[in-house]
Design a protein around this nucleic acid. Structure first.
Lengths: 134, 134
DNA sequence: GTTACCACTGAACATCTGTTCAGTGGATTG
DNA sequence: CAATCCACTGAACAGATGTTCAGTGGTAAC
């Protein structure tokens, strides 16, 4: 982190006080626009949580796993076979999906069966699929 | 850019022969389940494209940029001020958003004004926000 | 109890991502 | 045209991500 220090910069600094933000210089930016928009900008905390959620969906293998689970419940070794990954890798990825509550799981004998947590997810999936088909 | 070249191909290949898949061993996995699910699994190509899309949304700074643009059109330096980033960093991130057609842009004088490409995106945003509020 | 299987975990490694810094190109102003 | 501003780009670096490998814990079958 460590903000830019006093290296004679001009635009990056001190943006905390709404009374004198944006390097105290109105000519460099359109202060009125910035003022208007700034309070509507996602909070760092929310942005972070949302980013983590999308991040869970930002891997092809995880998406394949979800598309498999959209069909039916499956145990880890079946999932591994279906998407052609090692079981260890699948376990690691399922951990990510679990952390974002995208999947559920239950133990039955030696196997652990995973399933989609939410139909919610499928509608999301379809919306994105539409967006990409343009 | 620059997709994975021909450096590896072990796991992405040969998904065609349902007659002898999954290490040719029925006892290790539930072959019937795998058979049933496998054809519904997202293709590597589609999974890749979808992953890239979600990847564009998987960064807090980019989400902040989008939330700002959801309010109104803004030029780069205003965006930088609104989300407290350097202008160069903003430019790099906007490149990512452009590549997924999440934003539009137009030049006006010395400035380049960016805006949300699609209301589509906002509904996506809201769905995820709901999911996270549980 | 012993063995075998399924799933999870931690460490190590290669790769990808995002920021900063320095420099370039386009457009306006004097 | 010289100076200035705005935005984009490439290189370099630090940090995050995903896979493999080896090992652990729980459960069922012998």
């Amino acid at each position: 982190m460590a903000n830019s220090r006093s290296t004679e910069n001009s635009t990056i600094q001190a943006v905390d006080a709404p009374s004198c933000d944006v390097s105290c210089d109105e000519s460099l930016v359109h202060l009125d626009n910035v003022r208007q928009v700034q309070p509507e900008v996602l909070s760092t905390e929310k942005a972070q949580r949302m980013a983590e959620f999308f991040s869970a969906l930002s891997d092809p293998h995880r998406l394949k796993l979800l598309s498999a689970l959209a069909q039916q419940e499956l145990c880890v070794c079946d999932l591994a076979a279906a998407v052609k990954m090692g079981e260890s890798a699948v376990s690691h990825q399922l951990r990510v999906l679990r952390s974002q509550r995208l999947v559920t799981y239950r133990r039955q004998g030696r196997n652990v069966y995973y399933g989609l947590a939410d139909d919610h997810i499928m509608s999301l999936y379809r919306e994105v699929a539409e967006h990409l088909d343009e």
